[in-house]
């Protein structure tokens, strides 16, 4: 992929502003638990770094996300009150999603300054490598979680992907990189 990374469209950013954090954290926790459970090799690759707290900072969202792999937990936090953490990774939401789905290379995003890292660099590297090997697919995880609504949700997510430029599904075919 050579085009500049897309930024979250302004209407979506504004829509995200008033979202209450507790239900958002419940939702993020459910997705994270499901991913950790269905990809046990991710926990093995993380090793001791699973106990670290990773602050994910999607710069075009109004909140910060705290990932604690050992508890399979992810919570949302106001930017004004960042939680304690061992490492911070910052960049546009599209960079995180593209890296997670195998569309972008983490080192290349670092070279281009799209991603910045602070704190425990080794923990960040372990997390990046564990997620890359797990071949996660957010769209599929969300569809599975939504039970009978899976089919319409898949369609909705495909449309959202097209409209926003965000990578919401795993890159599986070489053509995806064209």
């Amino acid at each position: 992929m050579t085009a500049p990374l897309p930024r979250l469209p302004r209407p979506l950013r504004l829509a995200a502003l008033p979202l209450p954090l507790p239900p958002l954290s419940l939702f993020l926790g459910a997705v994270t638990r499901r991913m950790v459970k269905s990809h046990p090799e991710m926990t093995r690759r993380l090793g001791d770094y699973g106990g670290h707290r990773f602050l994910i900072d999607p710069l075009d969202l109004p909140w910060l996300l705290l990932l604690h792999p050992a508890d399979a937990a992810m919570t949302a936090h106001r930017r004004a009150r960042p939680p304690a953490h061992d490492a911070r990774i910052a960049g546009p939401l599209s960079a995180f999603l593209a890296m997670m789905h195998g569309a972008e290379d983490g080192d290349a995003l670092f070279f281009s300054r799209d991603l910045t890292v602070e704190g425990d660099t080794a923990a960040v590297l372990a997390l990046r490598n564990a997620i890359d090997d797990a071949e996660l697919d957010l769209a599929e995880e969300l569809a599975t979680l939504s039970g009978p609504l899976a089919t319409p949700l898949r369609g909705l997510l495909t449309g959202a992907e097209r409209a926003t430029g965000l990578t919401l599904h795993r890159m599986t075919r070489l053509d995806d990189f064209a």
């Binding site: 195998g102 080192d107 890359d132 090997d133 890159m171 990189f177």
Partner: peptide, 13 residues
């Protein structure tokens, strides 16, 4: 070897 599968797929191809 320290790079992601995205790098590997694109460079190898």
């Amino acid at each position: 070897r320290q790079r992601s599968r995205a790098y590997v797929a694109q460079v190898v191809r």
